[in-house]
């Protein structure tokens, strides 16, 4: 599958378990400018609901899309403020 989302940076947390996908995404977002999008590549199946919950409850971030490519879960998170 493919997406047409333009990501500024890619964070690879494949192989890492809870809580690393959320924690590392939080740290990577800090380095982005407002409006930029981070692509997160994870193999932890819990990252799907974890990142959705994190973006929902955290100010300044927005979940643009989530997708699956084989055993990789791809998340797109935009920094909004």
């Amino acid at each position: 599958m493919s997406t047409n989302i333009d990501a500024t940076e890619t964070l690879d947390v494949k192989g890492q378990s809870c809580p690393m996908p959320v924690v590392e995404t939080g740290r990577a977002i800090d380095d982005l400018a407002v409006g930029e999008t981070l692509e997160v590549l994870a193999t932890d199946s819990g990252s799907v609901s974890d990142l959705a919950g994190w973006t929902d409850a955290t100010a300044g971030v927005e979940l643009v899309a989530q997708a699956e490519d084989g055993d990789v879960y791809i998340h797109y998170v935009r920094k909004t403020e």
Partner: peptide, 11 residues
Amino acid sequence: LILASTAAAFG
């Protein structure tokens, strides 16, 4: 430790 680092990520 997992809750602490996760909550920190939530701000």
